[in-house]
Amino acid sequence: MTTKAYAALLRGVNVSGHKKVPMAELRTLLTGLGHGDVRTYLQSGNAVFTSAPGDEKVLAAQLEQAIERHFGFGVDVLVRDHAYLKAVADACPFPAASLEGRQLHVMYFSEPVAASHLAFLDAASHLPDEFRLGDRALYLYVPDGLGRSKLAEALMKAAPVKGVVATSRNWNTVTKLVELTRPQPS
């Protein structure tokens, strides 16, 4: 059977004691859904698994339902395959190799977001922080880190695009997920 590697990105888990999802239990849930080679990365809701090639939205919905049943609360999940994760990393408009991981973030979206949705932001007033839209992703460059960024704060306060789930990862996690989902030689 042909399998494909995916990353599951859980939104808003294990932050300040809210929506606790122990990674061992997440691995058990994914294995129970029939996925193989299940691994987690950090405690912030990153899991990698293999599965028969399928629809990422269906895989995400299955995991969301399993989390709801097991933990009793809802969690938004995005599932992305290696090709997408690598394409997002390769398309980074900022000099990632010369930056610290905390200075560069990718906000992954469940659907495309039009530039017009972010037109309210006065980019010049947030310099040196910058952002660029990509394929269902937003690249965020914050030289002083996310916690000090007024641009990040403005993006978080922005009215969400109806029906679009967003979750953010720093550049170290972005590149690690590319590595962990890389196809293994047979």
Score class of each variant (00 low, 15 high):
3 T>K: 13
4 K>H: 15
5 A>V: 01
6 Y>R: 00
8 A>Q: 02
9 L>C: 04
10 L>M: 13
10 L>H: 15
11 R>K: 10
16 S>F: 07
17 G>K: 06
18 H>Q: 14
22 P>H: 10
22 P>A: 13
24 A>N: 07
26 L>I: 06
27 R>H: 06
28 T>A: 15
28 T>W: 01
29 L>T: 00
29 L>V: 00
34 G>C: 12
38 V>R: 01
38 V>I: 03
40 T>F: 02
40 T>C: 05
40 T>D: 04
41 Y>A: 01
41 Y>T: 00
43 Q>P: 02
44 S>T: 04
45 G>N: 05
46 N>C: 03
47 A>I: 03
48 V>P: 02
51 S>E: 07
54 G>S: 14
54 G>N: 12
56 E>L: 02
56 E>R: 04
57 K>I: 05
59 L>M: 06
59 L>D: 01
61 A>H: 09
64 E>V: 11
64 E>W: 10
66 A>K: 14
66 A>N: 11
67 I>H: 11
69 R>G: 09
69 R>W: 15
71 F>M: 05
72 G>C: 10
72 G>E: 09
73 F>I: 09
73 F>A: 12
75 V>L: 13
75 V>C: 07
75 V>K: 05
79 V>R: 01
79 V>N: 03
80 R>G: 00
80 R>E: 00
83 A>R: 13
86 K>N: 12
87 A>T: 05
87 A>D: 08
87 A>G: 04
87 A>F: 03
88 V>C: 05
89 A>W: 02
91 A>R: 10
91 A>L: 08
94 F>I: 09
95 P>K: 09
95 P>D: 11
98 S>A: 08
100 E>P: 06
100 E>Q: 13
102 R>K: 14
102 R>S: 12
103 Q>F: 10
103 Q>C: 05
105 H>K: 07
106 V>W: 05
106 V>Y: 06
110 S>F: 04
111 E>T: 08
111 E>M: 07
113 V>F: 05
113 V>P: 04
113 V>I: 15
115 A>D: 08
117 H>I: 01
118 L>P: 09
119 A>F: 06
122 D>A: 12
123 A>V: 08
125 S>D: 09
129 D>V: 10
130 E>W: 02
131 F>N: 15
131 F>S: 10
132 R>K: 15
134 G>E: 08
134 G>N: 14
134 G>F: 10
137 A>S: 15
137 A>V: 03
138 L>T: 03
138 L>H: 04
140 L>M: 13
140 L>P: 02
141 Y>C: 08
141 Y>A: 11
142 V>E: 12
143 P>H: 09
145 G>E: 06
145 G>Y: 05
145 G>N: 06
147 G>F: 07
148 R>N: 14
149 S>C: 09
151 L>T: 02
156 M>N: 13
157 K>C: 10
159 A>N: 15
159 A>S: 14
159 A>R: 14
159 A>Q: 12
161 V>A: 07
164 V>F: 03
165 V>G: 00
167 T>I: 04
168 S>I: 15
170 N>S: 06
171 W>C: 08
171 W>L: 08
173 T>P: 08
173 T>G: 09
173 T>I: 10
173 T>D: 07
174 V>F: 02
175 T>D: 02
176 K>L: 00
179 E>L: 07
179 E>H: 03
181 T>C: 04
181 T>L: 03
184 Q>K: 13
184 Q>A: 14
186 S>Q: 14
